[in-house]
């Protein structure tokens, strides 16, 4: 009997061991989170962590560097987005102001965008994205919400060229408010204009505004042009030398209106 059992065990040792091991494994499975095993595993982890330390530190450094690189990239992207948002906000504000100006103007105004600023035949010119199709004509007056900008000098189908009043050759018939004195305005430098030949017999003061006179065939009257900043007498003492500043910031000009006709 015993020898038969022994033979059976020898013959079937693989199956018997497998059944035993499977049984033990299943028993262990049913006793998951065994305390002794957890302690052993913790001690093993403590031991190996000493060996792994340099590699872990290296890995940590690599991750920090990668995170840093990603953060710098994010900061750059966010800065760019912020700049875009600020630019859009400013544009929005400008367009809102222009819209308000258009609604209160007595002229029919066509909004136009400056697509190019350049220099042609000794004249500063701007190219507008409006042309014959939009009813723009030669000598149509151009303004923005601050005041007079210039006039259209050539018209294409979809765009037009315009000259500004702030340039060496430009002359403008103006009227100083509130005294209603007429004179000729010339560009001087930057955003500064001069008016001469105004007799000292009239009272002219700094801070008074300069408007178009309406005597010109091109510009209607009472379009704001600028403000007087300095009043001095000429050498002969009979006339003033008047300096002023244009209302329109010509350097930063982006959107304008073209007069189509009176309302």
């Amino acid at each position: 009997m015993l020898s038969k059992l022994y033979d059976f065990i020898i013959r079937k040792h693989l199956e018997i061991l497998t059944v035993i091991f499977v049984g033990v494994s299943l028993l262990l499975l049913s006793r998951t989170e065994n305390h002794v095993v957890l302690v052993l595993q913790t001690r093993w982890q403590d031991f190996t962590s000493v060996i792994k330390k340099p590699l872990i530190e290296q890995e940590h450094k690599r991750r920090v560097m990668e995170e840093n690189r990603q953060l710098r990239k994010d900061v750059f992207l966010l800065k760019r987005e912020l700049a875009q948002a600020q630019s859009l906000m400013m544009e929005n504000q400008r367009l809102r102001d222009m819209l308000g100006f258009r609604d209160t103007s007595k002229y029919e105004l066509l909004p136009a965008l400056i697509v190019y600023k350049g220099f042609k035949d000794g004249t500063n010119i701007i190219t507008l994205n409006r042309g014959k199709r939009d009813n723009v004509k030669e000598n149509s007056v151009i303004v923005n919400k601050e005041g007079l900008v210039g006039r259209v000098i050539a018209v294409g189908n979809r765009s037009s060229l315009a000259g500004m009043i702030a340039e060496p050759e430009a002359r403008l018939s103006i009227c100083i408010n509130p005294v209603r004195v007429y004179g000729i305005l010339k560009w001087h430098h930057g955003n500064i204009f001069v008016i001469d030949d105004i007799p000292t017999s009239v009272d002219v003061r700094e801070g008074w505004t300069v408007m178009t006179s309406g005597l010109s065939e091109i510009y209607p009257e009472n379009i704001p042009v600028g403000r007087i900043t300095k009043v001095t007498s000429s050498e002969n003492g009979f006339t003033y030398l008047i300096e002023g500043e244009y209302f329109v910031p010509f350097k930063n000009l982006r959107e304008v209106f073209i007069f189509i006709h009176d309302r």
Partner: peptide, 17 residues
């Protein structure tokens, strides 16, 4: 394997099985 590898103790006995 279950003793030395972290995380393997979720099912203690699964690996020998």
């Amino acid at each position: 394997q279950e003793l030395v590898l972290p995380g393997a103790l979720l099912y203690w006995g699964l690996s020998p099985l």
